[in-house]
């Protein structure tokens, strides 16, 4: 229990630091959103309108910085991330709320698939090292060393354009009604197949190699020899003794990659015109949409933190040595 409290305190402090940085960095940049809005309308804005925009964006410089800082926190706790410039006056939280599920669904699912598949393959490869299974390694490493957007483009060219098996872009068919019905879900799965495949193919090698190497290391541990000497079935030795210990570093890696789910597939979503958070971030950047960028950065930070919390919990469940008894 002490372990979890200590970790919780750590995460609260980290979250506070992240939010603080997120508050100050944009304010240290030259220029402000109102100026960029002005330049978008080429200065054709009334002076009074400029003034009210400043108030709206919380840029009325009457308030001292520390006051703004506390206001920012207050807004955060109400889920208020400001207002998007680009799709003015939609609140940032609404935009994020719309695009986040798509990214988490697509990239999250494919990361989990890649992790599970890669780890299982890594166990088999590590256990049967030196056999024909090893041929899989250069193959998967090849795919992970190729830039994934290139794989994505090839996948679109082959399966989308030439063979016509899969749609080229988008996240569901325009013919179906979004909602909890079978045809919509089927359409979402169908549209996400190619992007998901690309992510799995380009990331699986890391999981395979990591797991394989850990299995090789752990296999020479005395307790694995003891398990063999006990005459346990090979699968027991492989999973309960070798893999059970070898998987621990994989879990940390998995948590980190979960954290990057939200941010990591910017280009991917661009290539497939997938309406996820990465796509939004790119739009926000090219349109100087500071509030949206800030909001997305905050979400990315928190997703990394949450992924780490999950990893800590899983790690503590898997490895008794981490949960020290008080």
């Amino acid at each position: 229990m002490k372990f979890f409290i200590r970790r919780a305190v750590f995460y609260v402090i980290t979250a506070w630091a992240a939010v603080t940085l997120n508050f100050f960095i944009p304010r240290l940049l030259p220029g402000d959103p109102v100026q960029s809005l002005l330049s978008r309308y080429q200065g054709n804005i009334d002076v009074n309108a400029v003034k009210s925009l400043r108030v709206l964006f919380g840029l009325d410089s009457q308030k001292p910085l520390w006051q703004q800082y506390f206001d920012y926190f207050g807004q955060l706790f109400h889920g208020d991330l400001g207002i998007s410039l680009q799709s003015f006056p939609t609140p940032v939280s609404e935009i994020i709320g719309q695009s986040l599920p798509w990214t988490i669904g697509l990239v999250g699912m494919s990361t989990i698939i890649a992790f599970v598949l890669g780890t299982l393959l890594g166990i088999v490869l590590g256990w049967h090292r030196g056999t024909k299974w090893d041929a899989l390694i250069p193959l998967t490493t090849f795919f992970s060393s190729v830039p994934y957007f290139w794989i994505a483009l090839i996948a679109i060219a082959v399966f989308g354009v030439n063979l016509g098996w899969f749609p080229l872009s988008g996240s569901y068919s325009p013919d179906v009604m979004p909602g909890l019905n079978m045809s919509f879900i089927a359409s979402v799965c169908y549209y996400s197949f190619l992007p998901a495949l690309t992510i799995v193919i380009s990331s699986i090698a890391g999981w395979i190699l990591g797991m394989r190497n850990m299995i090789v290391t752990v296999s020479s541990e005395d307790y694995v020899t003891v398990a063999q000497a006990k005459g346990l079935p090979e699968s027991d030795v492989m999973f309960h003794y070798a893999a059970r210990n070898a998987i621990l570093p994989q879990i940390s890696g998995f948590a980190l990659s979960l954290g990057f789910v939200v941010s990591g597939t910017l280009v991917m979503e661009q290539v497939f015109s997938y309406q996820g958070i990465g796509y939004r971030l790119l739009q926000a950047t090219s349109n100087n949409d500071y509030p949206l960028m800030q909001g997305i950065f905050l979400i990315i930070t928190f997703s990394v933190l949450i992924a780490n919390i999950l990893a800590d919990i899983v790690y503590a469940l898997l490895d008794p040595r981490t949960r020290k008894e008080a």
Binding site: E221, D222, Y223, T225, V226, A227, A229, H240, Y241, R244, N245, L318, D319, P320, R321
Partner: peptide, 11 residues
């Protein structure tokens, strides 16, 4: 075995 300390599976 020789290594009393490593002969048991830690998990």
């Amino acid at each position: 075995f020789q290594g009393a300390l490593n002969s048991l599976n830690p998990v």
